[in-house]
């Protein structure tokens, strides 16, 4: 049993079977992470480079811990303070890192599609840790895994994704992943932050956050990505918080207790008020915990794939 892909570039390329396999493997690693000795010798023959051209706290630490818990050797690279600022190209940078005998590359890049470009040029397995506004596959996997832990099978479950849908790679990967697992998805937020024709991905659109919350079992609340908005798309953060932020009164007025998720980093008081982020309904820290197990599963399942020929399937 292996994944149908050599790289984890996007959820779009995964089969339902791949996702199930990642979840089953993650269950095992979650068991390991709850033991007193959390380190496995499994990948002690593998070296992994974490190449981050964009800022990250959670994803980067989570990947690094996952790799180390599997026994792999890890090197970290961030664009600031590297030769990228001296004008080195992406391919040159990666070729140089691979020349030092690295077997797998975890990359975050601000350009959408960068991991696909890389996959066409190098042999090592690539894991996309977020590319521009396109995909963030491990986040979607850990989100769906966390939802499943609380709700069981996701078939027919209702998930609302609220916020900056337009610039969010988390939103896109989540939509692909939840669709594959049979959940229904609504996206909600101001019209300027919801891309046109997003219905063609099989999601509902709702501009009224209260209505969207009434409809769903899970609300995945996203951060406003000001760094990707090159022209103003809403007047002020205060106004956004007023109309599209999720607060406690709103949650208490719903007929049932819905689950609140957030991929982090949270802008407290903007998309979520503090009392919601810290409430019993919030599983934000479970998401972070599950992230390590999911990333261990992905790294483990892809670790043997570099040796396989002929089954390469990239976008």
């Amino acid at each position: 049993m292996s994944l149908s892909v050599k790289h984890l570039l996007g959820i779009k390329e995964l089969t339902v079977n791949d996702i199930e396999q990642i979840f089953i493997t993650a269950d095992n690693f979650k068991g390991v992470l709850n033991r007193s000795i959390k380190k496995l010798p499994t990948l002690n023959h593998i070296a992994i480079a974490n190449i981050f051209f964009e800022n990250s706290t959670r994803t980067r630490i989570s990947f690094e811990l996952a790799e180390k818990r599997l026994g792999a050797d890890v090197v970290n690279f961030s664009a600031s303070g590297s030769s990228v600022s001296k004008g080195e190209t992406l391919i040159d940078t990666v070729h140089n890192i691979l020349a030092m005998k690295v077997d797998m590359v975890v990359m975050r890049h601000s350009a959408s599609g960068a991991p696909w470009f890389l996959a066409n040029h190098i042999d090592a397995s690539i894991i996309n840790a977020g590319d521009g506004a396109n995909e963030h596959p491990t986040q979607a996997l850990l989100d769906a895994y966390s939802m499943r832990e609380k709700l069981g099978d996701l078939k027919g479950k209702r998930v609302t994704i609220i916020g900056d849908i337009m610039h969010s790679r988390v939103a896109l990967s989540n939509i692909f992943c939840l669709n594959k697992l049979g959940a229904e998805v609504t996206v909600a937020g101001p019209p300027t932050l919801i891309p046109k024709h997003i219905e063609s991905l099989g999601v509902r659109v709702e501009y009224n956050v209260k209505k969207a919350l009434e409809w769903c079992d899970v609300a995945n609340v996203l951060r406003i990505q000001l760094e990707r908005q090159h022209k103003p798309l809403f007047s002020t953060l205060r106004e956004y918080a007023q109309y599209y932020g999720v607060n406690k009164q709103m949650l208490d007025s719903l007929a049932k207790d819905i689950i609140i998720m957030h991929p982090g980093p949270i802008n407290r008081g903007v998309e979520l008020t503090s009392d919601v982020a810290d409430s019993k309904q919030s599983i934000i820290l479970d998401q972070v915990e599950n992230g390590v197990a999911i990333r261990m599963a992905v790294v483990y399942l892809l670790s043997g794939s570099g040796k396989r020929d002929g089954i390469e399937k990239i976008g």
């Binding site: 049993m1 292996s2 994944l3 396999q21 089953i24 493997t25 269950d27 095992n28 068991g31 390991v32 496995l40 010798p41 499994t42 990948l43 023959h45 599997l70 483990y300 399942l301 670790s303 043997g304 794939s305 040796k307 396989r308």
Partner: peptide, 22 residues
């Protein structure tokens, strides 16, 4: 006890094994 993660042939096997439960 599942021993998949402790095997000594992970680098030589072509197929990655999906573990059973511990």
């Amino acid at each position: 006890l599942d021993i998949t993660f402790y095997r000594d042939d992970l680098q030589t096997r072509n197929e990655i094994q999906v573990p059973s439960f511990t």
